[in-house]
Design a protein around this nucleic acid. Structure first.
Lengths: 220, 220
DNA sequence: ATTACTAATGGACGAGTAT
DNA sequence: TATACTCGTCCATTAGTAA
């Protein structure tokens, strides 16, 4: 297994949703990979020679696509790792966070109402029109990586509703536990806060108030 | 991103279901990685120094475990790739095949019975002692790539049972759908046919007969 | 058989530079 | 600004061995 796949992987990380190429100079690539512009250039050319990417010029930058062979190579690794985490590696720890309930900015209800239909389509729940905001004591690194889906930005009633990600989780408190989803607004995401949606009005259902201790477990 | 993760990845591929370590000599590792015994030895020691694996001696071989840091590193890559394939890379998330039910060679029942115990261990299902054979209209390229595991050749009652691969999938027909596995015997694999196993007797359960139209979706 | 050291060497790397 | 060539340097790799 050659070092080139690492370069291919690093390139794949730079892809945006639904866009089949990236624009990148060889200096950018070098910075991205922690190597010189010259080496990055060499790697990119080798990847092209190997038929793993296709590059064309697009103004000053290079337009880089991953070819079917490249995709297959990445997929092979993906499936191996998937196999490892979902079947072989038995100690699937849940990623746990602890924190306290806080009051959010208050328009959660309005927002969830707009997103509700799309959420129902995607994850099959009829969310309660409101979010439960939890301030996390020690936030794990990059929880957005655990998201299982994205709702793309959309316009409604002349307003823009930004892209959100969602993560399946369970929320639990003193003697109760409930399946839920963490929603991560891409723009206004506070680093140490998560917003929880659920089919239930969690505050009412479990008699929660600000400051109550809460645990949130992401299901890996 | 260092070359070491490739070594870690290659090690992870060698893990068996539910076993938290592998037994491996440095020569084995070298062969596995396509490098010399010396380099493999050096890499393994570096991985240990970096806290990504833990090694102990177990007789002649080394017993290698992946530490929590190592797991986290692999998981980061896994989640990146998952993100790539499930959200960024828009083309074919499910791999769909259409075909028609045919009658297999008839000893599927006997075979599955022998493989059943191993299948149960690996994928947690109690397969019905029989396969449903489907002749696929247009077979996608190399579906064996999507297999999540292998049952190695074994001897039983003086017969050799060859290596098979299995792929999680759903099978669906007119108004019904069921989780299943595609099994691919490595030797006698007809290019345009798949054998389906499931916990249910699919023919009886859904009233299927030869010629019925069927869709099989591989879950990527 | 192992693991793993040292020393020789081949290949990757980046500085300099042409285009 | 780019990309990408040449080439000297140095690091990774391996052969030879020791333990």
């Amino acid at each position: 297994m050659n070092r080139k796949v690492l370069v291919l992987y690093e390139l794949s990380r730079r892809f945006e949703n639904g866009v089949d190429h990236i624009l990148l100079s060889s200096s950018d690539a070098g910075r991205l990979l922690g190597i010189s512009q010259q080496s990055a250039c060499r790697y990119i050319n080798e990847l092209e020679r190997d038929g793993l990417i296709k590059k064309t010029r697009s103004g000053q930058k290079q337009r880089i696509e991953i070819t079917e062979n490249g995709i297959n190579l990445l997929r092979e690794i993906y499936l191996d790792l998937k196999n490892f985490f979902e079947y072989k590696y038995k100690y699937k720890q849940k990623l746990s966070m602890e924190g306290r309930i806080i009051t959010g900015i208050g328009d959660g209800a309005y927002y969830i109402k707009e997103y509700a239909e799309k959420l129902k389509e995607r994850i099959g729940i009829n969310p309660f029109y409101g979010t439960l905001n939890v301030k996390i004591d020690r936030m794990p690194f990059k929880i957005e990586k655990y998201s299982i889906g994205v709702i793309e930005e959309f316009r409604e009633k002349n307003r823009i509703f930004g892209r959100i990600r969602y993560i399946p989780a369970t929320i639990s408190g003193d003697g109760w536990s409930e399946d839920c989803f963490i929603v991560l607004p891409e723009r206004t995401h506070h680093k140490d806060e998560v917003e929880i949606i659920s089919e239930k009005n969690l505050r009412r259902e479990f008699g929660l108030k600000d400051g109550d201790k809460i645990r949130v477990d992401i299901l890996l």
